[in-house]
Simulated assay, not measured.
Amino acid sequence: MGLLALLLLGLAAWLIWTGRLQSMSAKDGMALGAALVGAVMAAKGKPLIGAPLLVGATLFFFARSRPGKTKGTPAPQPASPQAVIDARKLLGVGPDADARAIRSAHRRLIASVHPDKGGTEALAAQINAARDLLIRDMAQRD
Rank of each mutant, 00 (worst) to 15 (best):
S23I: 01
I102S: 09
G68L: 10
N128M: 00
R103C: 05
S112L: 02
M24A: 13
A130H: 05
M24K: 02
S23W: 05
G29V: 00
A124Q: 01
A124H: 04
D132F: 00
A75Q: 11
G45A: 09
S104E: 13
Q77Y: 10
V55P: 00
V55Q: 01
R107M: 06
H106G: 04
D28P: 05
P47M: 07
R100W: 02
F61W: 08
M138R: 15
A130N: 04
L32H: 11
P76Y: 04
L9E: 14
L134Q: 11
L90A: 06
P74Y: 03
L9G: 13
P81C: 04
L133Y: 05
A26P: 01
T73Y: 10
D86W: 12
K89E: 09
W14P: 05
L8V: 15
A35R: 11
A79I: 03
P95M: 09
M41Y: 04
R136H: 08
L11R: 03
D132W: 00
P74D: 02
G19D: 12
Q77D: 05
S112N: 01
K27H: 07
A13D: 11
M30T: 13
H106W: 15
S104V: 08
Q140N: 07
P67T: 13
L11M: 10
T120H: 06
L133M: 07
M30G: 11
L6T: 15
L8M: 13
V37R: 05
R103K: 15
M138V: 00
R88I: 11
F61G: 07
A79R: 03
Q126A: 07
